Amino acid sequence: MSESPQDSFAPSQLRPGDVLLMRGHGPVSDLIAWFGDSIYSHAALMVDTDHLVEAALPTSRLVPLQTRLTQGKDYAFIDVFRPTRPDGTPLSDAERQAIAAAGRGLIGVAYPLDALLQLALVATLRNRIPADARLRWWLRMLIDELLTDDPQQMVCSELVYTALRTAGLAPALIVSAQLDLPLPAIDLGSLIEEWREARGRRHPATLAAPSPTEMLDADGLAAAFQTLKQARHGTPPGLRALGMPGLPTVNPADVLPVDLETSPQLRRAGRLPLTSP
């Protein structure tokens, strides 16, 4: 995504609660972005107009914005995503402050370095499956069930999502990424029945699957995803308008930058200027 004068976002316009999605330089950042099928490899949260909170080694930390804006040798670009309510209307100052307070409350949380490989494998499986919308939806829900949500340790996008959720403003997430790597033929009906039976033993109130009429076919999913990707400015389209069911439950440990990037409740506002010392 190239930057244009209209795309440039002045740091003075940042507000508490804004989400920053970044692409770092280097092979690790490239792999993180590839695993997650996104142009972004890192996420952070503005907690006031001058500071951001991010997950990092050894623990999450508070970083001066001006420090980050001079780290052009470490980051290729930083994009600003502005959270909204489910209907696309702006957040109030009180709601923004609630997000900021939740973000500050996560300073000092450990970074799960030993879980990165697991997350990479999960991301590869989750994002690199056929375009069948129902299979993608069920696989995402299955992975969310299998991963352990440990609030004592968090990666970057997990921290951002947790802060938004703690403030009561968790953004709706969708099944979005689409690639065409081959996968063996799967009996979807049997897969769904086995999953529902297994989940029913753990949770008596089983999750109802989206009916075929609620899901898009492969072409429809691709078209809806492109519509969402193009709606970076202005009011984000709702999930119902797109025909895409949101994920009814979300495990923060499975939230990746692509989930924040494609959420209808996070509107891309522009790109911050970066310099190198």
Rank of each mutant, 00 (worst) to 15 (best):
P5K: 01
D7Q: 11
D7K: 03
P11G: 04
P16S: 10
V19C: 04
H25R: 15
P27A: 14
I32V: 15
F35T: 14
S41Q: 08
A43T: 11
A44D: 02
H51A: 02
L52N: 01
V53Q: 05
A56L: 11
T59I: 05
R61W: 01
V63T: 15
K73C: 12
F77C: 04
D79Q: 11
P83Q: 10
P83G: 07
P83M: 07
D93W: 08
A94V: 12
R96G: 01
I99V: 12
I99A: 06
A102C: 13
I107H: 07
A110M: 13
D114L: 15
Q118L: 15
L119H: 10
I129T: 14
A133S: 13
R134A: 14
L135C: 03
W137N: 01
P151Q: 05
Q152P: 00
S157R: 04
L159Q: 01
L159N: 02
Y161T: 09
A163T: 10
A177R: 06
I186C: 12
I186W: 04
L188Y: 00
S190I: 14
E197Y: 06
A198W: 03
A198H: 00
P204L: 06
A208R: 12
A209W: 03
P210S: 10
E214N: 08
A218Y: 00
A222G: 05
Q226K: 14
L228Y: 01
G234W: 05
G238T: 15
L239I: 11
A241H: 11
L247Y: 02
L247T: 02
T249P: 05
P252S: 13
D254K: 06
D254H: 03
P257Y: 03
L266H: 05
L272I: 15
P277L: 09
